[in-house]
Computed example of a mutant assay.
Amino acid sequence: MPPKHFTLNTGAKIPSIGLGTWQSPPGQVASAVSYALQNGYTLIDGAYCYANEDEVGQGLAEAFSAGKVKREDIFVVSKVWTTYNTRVEEGLDKSLKSLGLDYVDLFLVHWPLLMNPEGNHDRFPTKPDGSRDIIQGYNHVDTWKQMEALLKTGKTKAIGVSNYSKLYLEQLLPHATVIPAVNQIENHPSLPQQEIVDLCKEKGIHIMAYSPLGSTGGPLLSAEPVVKIAEKHGVKPSSVLLSYHAPRGSTVLAKSVTPERIKENIESLIDLDEEDQAELKAYSDKLVAEKKWQRFVYPPFGVNFGFPDKQ
């Protein structure tokens, strides 16, 4: 079986698989979180932007009250949203209140930009023409300095980033007194983002992979090497895609609100052998060489974040 944990640059252990909560249907998040925690999961990934942290908190409380898991055994992740990047602690306080927690295990910068904190919407302020209300010229390093200050409050055990390209990491790191513990990025064989993975490995930054299946009903599930490896091991293509990350040293986020699927995702992980890994790498390398990579999550910010596939 793949490893159950990896070690962060803080010395803390982070689970190799977690439950993602982005876009989970309202009214189903609490039961999904509770079920996951009582059936093998020890990592829950959330964010203020997802607008469901109240439900995540309900699920946490339900699982704790059931007596099967304790707070100290669970790794909870949240993220500061772009409208709070100049008031990071306030953003964290809102998440903690919703989650019903005194601290999170990891707090991330969700995206390295600033949307108008005084705009017409708490999460998605817009200009009169309907475009996102972005504050141009904001330096994302300023947000990181506030993140570093959070560590003294005890409200988070570790800090990190999300959706950071190699370019943005190279802008950040010379000014960081605390190296990010994590960079959470979209990652799968159709978007290996190897330049980011390699830089993070060099700097001791752990990768958390979201959207590991690409998209619902997406082409990854029917990609030839994925199907071939699944048949070889007698598992579903989704199991191969979730298992792709452990050999890369990365944590993967599996997303579902269906009990059977939640359980299947964690129980069907397999050890990919060297031949399997080589086939998936060859598939990725060919897509990158032909510039046919596929990114499935990219909000319409109108900002160049430095990703090669978005130039």
Rank of each mutant, 00 (worst) to 15 (best):
I74S: 10
N85K: 06
Q171W: 05
S162I: 04
N139E: 10
V182Q: 07
V69T: 12
L151C: 04
K68N: 13
Q146E: 13
S165W: 06
K97G: 06
Q193T: 09
K145Y: 05
E148I: 03
K201R: 15
V109Y: 05
F75K: 10
V69I: 15
E170K: 07
D129H: 03
T177S: 05
K94L: 15
T153M: 02
I74C: 12
Y164P: 02
L92C: 15
G67I: 06
H140T: 00
G137A: 06
Y138A: 07
T153L: 02
K203V: 01
E186A: 09
D73R: 04
N116E: 02
H175E: 14
A158C: 04
N187I: 03
H175A: 10
P192R: 12
W81G: 00
H188I: 08
K203I: 06
N183I: 03
D73E: 15
K157I: 01
G154L: 04
L172R: 09
D129I: 00
G154N: 04
L114Y: 01
V77E: 13
M115E: 03
K70I: 00
V76I: 15
N183V: 02
M115T: 07
N139R: 12
L150I: 10
H188C: 09
L92Q: 14
V76P: 00
K79F: 00
L99S: 03
V104N: 06
S95M: 13
K155H: 02
I135Q: 07
Y164T: 02
Y138K: 14
D129G: 01
S190T: 06
P125G: 08
Y84M: 15
H140P: 01
I185H: 10
K203W: 07
L150T: 10
E186G: 06
A181E: 04
R132S: 07
P192V: 10
G67D: 10
R123W: 14
G154A: 05
E148Y: 02
V76T: 14
S190E: 12
V77Q: 14
R132D: 02
L167A: 11
V88Q: 09
P128K: 06
T156I: 12
N116H: 07
T126P: 03
F124G: 08
P125Y: 08
N187T: 07
T86P: 05
I196L: 09
H175G: 04
T156D: 11
K145E: 07
K152E: 05
V197C: 09
W111Y: 15
S190Y: 12
E148T: 01
T82K: 12
K157P: 00
K70N: 03
P128W: 01
L199Q: 14
P112R: 08
T156H: 12
D142W: 05
E148C: 05
N139G: 08
Y164L: 05
K201D: 12
A158N: 03
G100M: 15
K203M: 13
K166G: 02
K79Y: 03
K79T: 01
Y164E: 03
L108K: 08
D93K: 15
Q136C: 01
W81F: 05
I134V: 13
V141G: 08
S131V: 00
F124K: 13
T126I: 11
K70W: 00
W81T: 01
